[in-house]
Design a protein around this nucleic acid. Structure first.
Lengths: 166, 166
DNA sequence: ATTTGTTTTCAATAATTCCTGAAAATTACA
DNA sequence: TGTAATTTTCAGGAATTATTGAAAACAAAT
């Protein structure tokens, strides 16, 4: 396969996968572009390559910085801002875990904790409480595990995979 | 908290979380409703409780059955179809893993395999190939791990959590 | 075979999410 | 301080995704 074709395919697939996971397609495409860029890029270059507007480019680069997946790089003598993607895959995955945990898992756990105050007084509410407790236990375990994962280093993570697969 | 309030909050939150994860909100709300229902429900009851159309209810119940999260239940003497949610949390999580792996991870891996045929002949394509290989390794490891997880039983999974947290 | 109850489909529409582009704000420089 | 380059914001519009509702298909009972 040609490099140019591969590049296009990679950007498209990365975007597709992201949108399956509830993440803005363009944000992921910008991420893909910066991931495979050997050098830091300006917003203008991103606009140009992906054929998107300035506002869109700005918005998504900003979001990627919020996620800790892209960093701003200032070049001396240059007025424009340059952006580089975090290239270490383990760091990338870790940042995604950190963010999704904070944005989605933790709020859900908070709700489940509130729901734990429902009294099981009738058959209906009894079953409700059971389900809530099950999910609650599961979520808390997942949350703890993710905390551990986040603190762990790359090798630790690889080793976990190996242990599981073995 | 009152049971009715808790129920409404659970359904709403489950739907919210799902839509964050790229899953149809209503599908998740139907799932939540069936999860906490002590008895099997008909499509009409689902429509009524969630205040959605027949078409919408049918479509999402069907999708939940595709995911293996809801089962059809026929009652003798009854003409209508009844639906029950899978209540075992480990089975629920496993089914979700199975489906998302097949729908999203595997197609991505297939693309990455194709991209592996790009020749690293210039600085740009060289870096591209490196990134693709990194992601490829990661994805394959994740895929293998998920295969193992899927085969594992509930205790095994719980033990893994405990091991990681310890 | 016909009626009646139930489920499924799908074109039209509604709701949501995303993107644009130009104006405003910010920043660097002379 | 004024000017020019750059970034940010955001209202309006475009694109995508979800929902409705009524007709068609199907299934059970008579």
């Amino acid at each position: 396969m040609e490099f140019q074709e591969g590049k296009a395919k990679f950007i498209e697939s990365w975007g597709k996968m992201a949108s399956d996971w509830g993440i803005n397609r363009t944000m992921a495409q910008v991420h893909a572009l910066l991931l495979i860029a050997p050098e830091a890029m300006t917003a203008d270059q991103v606009m140009e390559e992906l054929d998107i507007s300035r506002g869109n480019a700005n918005m998504n680069i900003r979001a990627l910085m919020d996620w800790g997946l892209v960093h701003k790089q200032l070049k001396s003598g240059e007025r424009k801002e340059f952006f580089v993607a975090e290239k270490d895959m383990w760091t990338v995955v870790r940042q995604i875990i950190i963010n999704r945990k904070k944005r989605e898992l933790e709020p859900m756990i908070k709700v489940l904790d509130e729901l734990a105050s429902v009294e099981p007084d009738a058959p209906e509410s009894e079953h409700f409480c059971e389900v809530v407790q099950d999910i609650r236990k599961f979520s808390n375990k997942a949350n703890q595990t993710l905390d551990t994962l986040i603190k762990a280093d790359s090798n630790w993570f690889t080793n976990m995979f190996l242990n599981l697969v073995r």
